[in-house]
Write a protein that binds this DNA or RNA. Sequence first.
DNA 1: GCGATTCACTAAACCGGTCTAGCGACTGGG
DNA 2: CCCAGTCGCTAGACCGGTTTAGTGAATCGC
Lengths: 346, 346
Amino acid sequence: MSRPTIADIAQRAGVSKGAVSFALNGRPGVSDSTRQRILRVAEEMNWRPHSAARALGGARAGAVGLVLARPARTIGVEPFFAQLLSGLQAGLSAHAVALQLMVVEDTAAEVEVYRRWASEHRVDGFILVDLQLRDPRIEVLEELGLPTVVLGGPGRHGRLPAVWADDRAAMLSIVDYLAALGHRRIAHLAGLPAFQHTQRRIRALRDASRRLGLAEAVSVPTDFSDAEGAAATRALLARSPRPTAIVYDSDVMAVAGLGVAAEMGVSVPGELSVVSFDDSVLARIVHPALTALSRDTFALGEQVAGALLGAIADPSSAQDLKTATPRLTVRESTAPPGLGRLTKSV
Amino acid sequence: MSRPTIADIAQRAGVSKGAVSFALNGRPGVSDSTRQRILRVAEEMNWRPHSAARALGGARAGAVGLVLARPARTIGVEPFFAQLLSGLQAGLSAHAVALQLMVVEDTAAEVEVYRRWASEHRVDGFILVDLQLRDPRIEVLEELGLPTVVLGGPGRHGRLPAVWADDRAAMLSIVDYLAALGHRRIAHLAGLPAFQHTQRRIRALRDASRRLGLAEAVSVPTDFSDAEGAAATRALLARSPRPTAIVYDSDVMAVAGLGVAAEMGVSVPGELSVVSFDDSVLARIVHPALTALSRDTFALGEQVAGALLGAIADPSSAQDLKTATPRLTVRESTAPPGLGRLTKSV
DNA sequence: GCGATTCACTAAACCGGTCTAGCGACTGGG
DNA sequence: CCCAGTCGCTAGACCGGTTTAGTGAATCGC
């Protein structure tokens, strides 16, 4: 027999399909002795539920959806995503929930996938990332009515619950640290300006600079690619006076910036301090090792998974969850400004 | 109405459910005029198929499975996987097929997921990666009977079709290049010894060394982590005489090795040439940029996706597919040996 | 001791599609 | 003109579960 069904079990155990269903799902309606017998038979026949049949009856699909609207090639580049994915996986597989992943070209296609998956009952919920300034996806997801957890905030994300880290506080801690080292000219290589977190970081840096009486901080938007990171770094280092510290929104860009500094003969951390807003192996293994904001992205993924599973189990329980504020891990790429020239002149 | 079914469409169009099914699936059984009318009504009502209902009838699940047996945290670290995933995605989404991804602890758990997904009709096929020496998964997948494509080979993978690149030729090209530069002592930081491709690379290096009359090449197995990459590099550089070139099986380890060399005062490429068997942004952005084997991993993913979709459409058509042999991209991390000491002494 | 309630279980509807058997109308061949 | 074959469509079984209404027996309360 290729695949036993509950009808087979019912026949073998001498009961009805309904009784088998009750027994297998641990709900009342059968006596303990019958339940045990049914479970034993099911075990013997190596029965597994047919997910489609279950889903058809209106039950869970046993999967959640993650749709990314980015050029497919760039996904592999970002350690952040890979880490997040790992964490999500860990959180989901513990509850035998699978992750349906799809990478699409743009937001329009992304919305289309949400609609399709929802109407096909393919997933029980969604994870929404890369929150934009006025995000059209929120409205769609609210309308679809499937449990959804937003990664990012605080900010505009409608009635959808969010899991977020305090980006603002994190950026402030970086600026405080650099200012304490003596830096007065801090630059910022930001990410895509359409993203909410990019704007939050830019604003936090500007506010902190004013408060501490630093030179007006310059934030340069990029597309997160190593190419733009390198180009923007080149432009910044060509300025006069040039910044003594640069904060990078991603570690890929920070490493690219490190390369540019070496190429231009600017010593790190002697003449330029480098801070990455993202930590990963990358930040650890380059030389000099990068001072970076350690956000446990893996744990973040786990938390998002947990929040989503919670929202699926009980939609009314959903609420925002603030995760640990990222902490600065100081390595070798930061130092007081001017140290490089000083040692040289000595 | 929350979600129109084909029964709703049938009623509205004044036909039977069967006719609607025929029309929507483009199969004969209805006249052109009726078909047009049904399609128009379906469009108006914004109908979408219910994937579970379809799957229940024995049709496609519309998804393929990828199970990785690795510690979840390490997935994020490997650019290779992220790239592969991107490529798979691209190949699959073009045909509206989703990817079910699951990360598990070990091979036993992996096999269990295969069984579960197959019996739950959750996927139409599998992608098998990280081929091991005597791989127990192959037998299981053959027994399950679902179309499966193996990534890696040539070698033992039963009757399952494989997509593979010529690792041996690639390794030979690296050794030829290093030997032509004048290197005689080449070391190799390999991956997990249980993997087939690790053994193939080790063997290729040994064979090439003999053929070219080089010193016996030493291959050090690792777990692919940056930590072991660094430790093994330290051990190699402490030898006397130390190797003048090291080939790393992954770029993460190569970058870690670069760091160790800097820390030990060994100049790259002056005193040590470094080659990575994997190319990614990582190899491009570090300093010195790494000479690396460029395997278009994204394209590889696309090819695997294509092969699997083909095998699903027509299982008898499945056959092995050899992809382009990776080519060496020379950057700044390789040079003739002894150059470093030479320039220093001048 | 008798009606009411609980308990264990069965039969069958149901979810939303696919697919097959069959039926009436039309067409073509001899 | 009649029979066979094709066309266009319908009715209904079917996939493998869940869930509800219903049934017979045992138990309870008074």
